[in-house]
Design a protein around this nucleic acid. Structure first.
Ligand SMILES: [Mn+2]
Ligand SMILES: [Mn+2]
Ligand SMILES: [Mn+2]
Ligand SMILES: [Mn+2]
Lengths: 224, 224
DNA sequence: GTCGTACTTTAGCCCTGTCTAAAATTGTCC
DNA sequence: GGACAATTTTAGACAGGGCTAAAGTACGAC
């Protein structure tokens, strides 16, 4: 089976919204994410339902069928593997790859993506810390703990980002907040919830609660 | 400027026909190469002329403008670099890459292709021996001598193929006719123009005149 | 239970790219 | 120069994907 670029982008959008907000997924949530109009979404939903990629009941939102979810997962696999390629092989920064991967994910080839996977040595996470589904669609859920969930004195490793905008990612770069860094919460300011962090051996930095809510971490048991 | 996938494929088709048959390029030649209808071609020609990518006079064929030729060359550059990537890095055979490159050539990114070029160490020829334009669009013309142009006793190196179909390429593989092989014409059969060739140190092979007309060679001066 | 607002769908339109069938043009052969 | 065959263009239609404006539905507040 083959689907159009537009159909594929809708499937991916529905998958991502369902992953965060659960089902059913509303027309306006899709329109919002895809920067399009609700009326256009309704039109496409009818087509996707016709092809049995989604379950759709007028006025009550949609959910992906098994087939639809499978296809969405493959798209995410392709997107994330291409991002790995761009960063690991071509030397792009993690804030530059999303747009390009958004195009590359639609390349149709049975074998291309599996060979790319092997060439990259089967990475399990993309440059943003997002898990990469294997050829069967299975993937390990990433730790869902946000930095904002932790308390003073707790230590953690940065393992992912919720927000993918390049402005945000560049901000992280400039503050030494790369994936894998070891950090400790020194202080949480009572006025606005800003956090003071110690990163490795460097001077402490201050980040807003807004930023802390975009950072996924793996907690390190405090051995003291 | 950005163009659609269809527009890009038309530009490439016009470029390729002009390269072989010269200008002006006829509507039916384009329809033929693109597996579409002359009426559809006429529609598109009007749009391309409107955008000043081609010079078009009703009933008299088309030629590319400077802008159109430049864009076509960039597409060919992208197509051929991606083919190199697929063969050199991902291990595809030269008969498997055309379809995939046909899609990859449309990926839009200022920097992607230049980084890919560097990653591949700036190859000058693609897996089929076709020259790869540099970032400015310049490329060295490949030797245009066909194996069928040579006579008995002459030696040559196989440097390219005119036909790109996978059936043909697989036939070449099975007969040891890879790019770079050294060959000598032992005999040209008078009845049908078939050629008997010596390849390196192997047993001689027989190929048809039809095949010989698809093979580009660089002649080796016979030092005897 | 009715009302009002927010959300969703429908109706009608546009643009791209394709097609078939019919009309127009070219250019050759006499 | 005229007739004709091949080529090309136009006319009209359709499918995919999108938009605006108008109409329909759901559901919380009363
Ligand atoms: Mn996409
Ligand atoms: Mn990513
Ligand atoms: Mn193409
Ligand atoms: Mn090639």
């Amino acid at each position: 089976m083959k689907y159009t670029l537009a159909e594929e982008d809708y499937l991916k959008a529905i998958y991502k919204i369902a992953e965060r907000q659960g089902v059913p997924v509303s027309t306006s949530a899709i329109a919002d994410l895809m920067q399009t109009r609700p009326a256009s979404v309704t039109d496409m939903l009818k087509k996707l339902a016709e092809k049995e990629l989604i379950d759709y009941k007028r006025y009550h939102g949609v959910s992906l069928t098994k087939t639809g979810a499978r296809w969405a997962t493959q798209l995410i696999r392709k997107h994330r593997l291409w991002e790995c390629f761009l960063v690991d092989k071509l030397g792009f920064n993690w804030d530059e790859v999303h747009e390009i991967a958004e195009q590359l994910e639609h390349i149709q080839s049975e074998t291309l993506i599996d060979r790319l996977d092997d060439y990259l040595e089967n990475p399990k996470f993309d440059p943003h810390g997002d898990p990469i589904p294997d050829a069967s669609g299975a993937y390990r859920m990433r730790y869902q703990i946000l930095l904002s969930d932790l308390g003073i004195g707790q230590r953690a490793i940065l393992v992912g980002v919720r927000e993918h905008g390049s402005t945000f990612l560049q901000y992280l770069d400039q503050n030494g907040l790369a994936l894998g860094v070891d950090l400790e919460i020194l202080e949480i300011l009572p006025y606005d919830g800003s956090l003071r962090l110690r990163l490795a051996a460097n001077d402490p930095i201050l980040i807003s609660g807004q930023v802390a809510r975009q950072l996924y971490v793996r907690q390190i048991p405090t051995t003291g």
